[in-house]
Design a protein around this nucleic acid. Structure first.
Length: 230
DNA sequence: TCATTAAATTGTT
DNA sequence: AACAATTTAATGA
């Protein structure tokens, strides 16, 4: 099997690379397993690798001064993160925690830098990913001011299925309603109601400990139930 | 394999 | 936030 096909199993951007680049990338990647709840890297660590989520779910967050757990984003399987800290060669700004039993791929910093400096395809992927994330953050600021919890929950779930960032995510994700709440910045109880609402609309299917998306397009565009029908 | 118990998750107030 | 109901996991006969 070619290096590119081999790499494709854990990294969807493999098709952007030449055969030589893929071979070199593969050599710089190691695999590691994390149990549910375990910390992959702490804020402030010098985690010298670029991280890909092969299976499971990783939470990006911090702990506030009062010890409250703040979830900033979820990264679904297929997602790659940490290029910012790698490129700038600085300490991690957030904690990374495995929410489920999670298998990750770690690309050593020298390998990452080599790809970054030599591979056009790799940079195409990086730019696409950054662009997508910026769009997400802008949207987050935008809807943060209209506090419809159903919309917040809908967006956050939809983002976990972003086809640009996580093309291999499939259509279901293992998350409790409490985790949905943490991710969306609403209480568990609110998350519960929102999920029920979204399920009633046929956008998702809620199962115990997991959520399946039925209509990703409408879910991402969901803007709440209008008070008056249009 | 089945029954019992503990733990986790969910639905409500 | 607290409580009850439900589902899953773990244990041991």
């Amino acid at each position: 099997m070619s290096a590119r096909d081999e790499l494709r199993k854990i990294a969807f951007w493999a098709h952007e690379l030449s055969e030589e680049e893929a071979a070199r990338a593969l050599k710089g990647i190691t695999r590691r397993q994390y149990d549910a709840g375990s910390t992959i890297c702490h804020k402030g660590d010098n985690f010298n690798a670029w991280l890909g989520v092969v299976s499971g779910l990783v939470k990006l967050g911090t702990v506030s001064s009062e010890g409250k757990d703040i979830t900033l984003a979820g990264v679904a399987r297929g997602g790659w993160l940490g290029e910012g800290s790698l490129i700038k060669n600085e300490a991690r700004k957030y904690d990374l925690v495995a929410l489920r039993d999670t298998s990750v791929a770690l690309m050593a910093r020298p390998t990452f830098m080599w790809l970054f400096e030599t591979s056009v395809g790799f940079n195409r992927f990086l730019v696409r990913q950054l662009n997508e994330r910026i769009g997400q953050f802008i949207a987050m600021v935008e809807y943060d001011r209209m506090l419809d919890p159903d919309v917040r929950v809908a967006r956050h779930i939809a983002w976990l299925f972003n086809p640009v960032l996580y093309p291999d995510a499939g259509d279901s994700i293992d998350m409790t309603q409490e985790e949905v709440g943490l991710l969306s910045g609403v209480g568990r109880q609110t998350a519960n109601k929102a999920l029920a609402q979204l399920e009633a609309l046929g956008l998702i299917v809620v199962q115990r400990g997991s959520i399946s998306v039925r209509d990703p397009v409408r879910l991402a565009r969901f803007e709440g139930e209008p008070k008056k029908a249009r």
